[in-house]
């Protein structure tokens, strides 16, 4: 789960029209469609237009098989599985987006500062990164998630902490080389402040690396949230989470297989969609891959 994407530094703007290019790549298109569809369902669930509420219990109709009224059947409390899966996708996406945003911001800042200023800041940041790397990731998230009163937000922060070091590593190297590139040196010598140089000249050149890393991290974040919830340390109930739905369904699988199949298939589709999207972006943004697909 710690696959680092190592992209060569791309100095001038790569891929003029990334979106069109991604749409043209087969996996990118598939990824966008899949993720888009799931997101629509998630948004529908948030707006409350779905026929059932994700947490409303209806014991009379418990463990009903999929039908016209309950598309994915009901669970042991008579809750509509489709509504729960949809809300679970919303929950997973929200946590993944918040976690990755946080990790990207903090990690990139760390990589920029470390790579650009070197010396003490770099030593400190690299030291911290090494420590976080040496800590087993799932155990780290798990311990962090149990420190504070658990809400979806603290879960997101716990996942973010695990991913911060990855973003530090991914950005620090390119920053180191960019620092020596002609136009950056030129900008520095014209007297622009170092922070301005960093933001105006270095950061934009990290975009393609970051975009690919973000897409891949989103899929890992969804998986991590699901694993944490499976362990009972993710999103607290009764809010539905795909991981805890799978956990709860394990004992039901012989009498009501849909309770496991629905969240199982959906979590896989969501991750597949995000992975395809990441692949598509990599195809477009990583010159090494061009022509090989």
């Amino acid at each position: 789960m710690s696959e680092l994407t190592e992209l060569p530094v791309t100095v001038a703007g790569t891929a003029r029209r990334p979106l069109t290019a991604v749409l043209r790549s087969r996996s990118g298109l598939a990824g966008i469609i899949l993720t888009g569809l799931l997101l629509v369902v998630a948004i529908l669930s948030l707006t409350g237009v779905l026929p059932y509420d994700a947490t409303a219990q209806d014991p009379v109709h418990r463990l009903a098989a999929p039908s016209a009224s309950h598309w994915f059947g009901t669970d042991q409390f008579g809750r509509d599985v489709f509504a729960r899966v949809a809300a679970g996708v919303a929950n997973s996406s929200l946590i993944a987006v918040v976690a990755v945003t946080f990790a990207t911001t903090v990690g990139t800042a760390g990589g920029l500062i470390g790579g650009f200023f070197r010396r003490l800041p770099d030593a400190l940041i690299s030291g911290l990164t090494n420590i976080l790397f040496a800590f087993p990731p799932l155990l780290l998230a798990l311990s962090l998630a149990s420190v504070f009163t658990r809400t979806w937000f603290t879960v997101a922060v716990a996942i973010a902490v695990v991913y911060v070091p990855i973003f530090v590593r991914v950005t620090r190297g390119p920053v180191l080389s960019l620092r020596e590139v002609e136009f950056v040196r030129a900008a520095t010598s014209t007297g622009e402040s170092r922070i301005a140089v960093m933001l105006r000249h270095v950061l934009p050149n990290l975009t393609s690396i970051l975009v690919v890393q973000i897409a891949l991290s989103l899929s890992w974040a969804v998986l991590t949230e699901a694993s944490l919830s499976f362990l009972g340390l993710g999103t607290p109930p009764p809010a539905p989470s795909l991981g805890s739905m799978i956990f709860e369904s394990r004992t039901l699988v012989s009498i009501a297989p849909w309770t496991m199949a629905a969240p199982g298939v959906v979590v896989v589709l969501l991750v597949v969609g995000l992975n395809l999207l990441g692949d598509g972006l990599r195809d477009v943004l990583d010159p090494r891959n061009r022509g090989t697909r």
Partner: peptide
């Protein structure tokens, strides 16, 4: 536990009593 709490909250809401649920892990 959580399902009991949820049902209690739903029933009490009908008379204007709000149960503000705080779901905690065992240690907490």
């Amino acid at each position: 536990s959580v399902n009991e709490a949820q049902n209690l909250a739903a029933q009490l809401a009908e008379v204007g009593i709000t149960l503000k649920l705080e779901v905690l892990e065992s240690g907490a």
